[in-house]
């Protein structure tokens, strides 16, 4: 692991550290590995977070208080489109990873941009859907069902949005710094995050939408 650690150039009082030999490189490598593990644990806490939202949705799914039901207002075609878009973006983020492992910075950035664009179109479709629902008279305050619906779907959408901002920041960092152990780790964890969001969406799709229109 002889990557030059250009990150230590700073003018800190202690910065009399000329030699970055193998040992320090190894140090650094361990740190990146640890951060990836930490992020994995964060994802598991997110599993619990979504689990709680799903539990709430399932418990309140019949409580429409005489208002519109999901089956009446949900329009599946848009949802199907966004499902395939998100599935594809999970795949493209995987290709970005392959490009990175091949050391191809341009390919990596290109595939990340494609992933981000797919993510953005997913968000666009979701916002359109929400606007449509509000026009049809279903808001977060309509009934317990719609409160749970908007919160669950919206929390997932918020996660995707955060992922988009993060991915953009990462693309800028990659174009500036290239593929280093640090940026490599960052790409790795954002792709984990992206796959995770895909998994969550599959359950949103199944439980909220498919079972909602059955």
């Amino acid at each position: 692991m002889a990557h030059a650690i250009d990150t230590h150039k700073g003018a800190h009082g202690h910065s009399a550290h000329g030699s970055h030999d193998g040992h320090h490189g190894h140090d650094h490598h361990d740190q990146e590995e640890m951060k990836t593990f930490g992020f994995w644990l964060f994802l598991i806490t997110d599993v619990i977070l979504f689990g709680t939202l799903f539990a709430t949705f399932v418990v309140l799914r019949l409580n429409t208080a005489g208002g519109p039901t999901g089956a009446e207002l949900i329009e599946l075609p848009g949802i199907i489109a966004s499902t395939f878009i998100l599935l594809t973006s999970s795949f493209t983020s995987g290709i970005a990873l392959l490009e990175m492992n091949r050391g191809n910075k341009k390919g990596l950035i290109l595939w990340l941009i494609i992933t981000a664009l797919l993510g953005a179109s997913f968000i666009y479709l979701e916002v359109t859907e929400f606007i449509h629902l509000v026009h049809e008279g279903a808001t977060i305050g309509t009934s317990a069902y719609w409160s749970a619906f908007f919160t669950l779907v919206g929390t997932h959408g918020l996660h995707v949005t955060v992922g988009l901002v993060w991915m953009t920041a990462l693309i800028i960092q990659l174009s500036r710094r290239g593929i280093t152990p640090v940026t490599k780790r960052k790409v790795n964890i954002i792709s984990l995050y992206w796959h995770f969001l895909d998994v969550v969406w599959i359950f949103v799709f199944t439980i909220v939408y498919l079972m909602g229109v059955m």
Binding site: N63, A65, A144, Y145, S147
Partner: peptide
Amino acid sequence: GAHFFTLDGGGN
């Protein structure tokens, strides 16, 4: 104004 835990609007 959501209705998760309210007494009206189907909250529980």
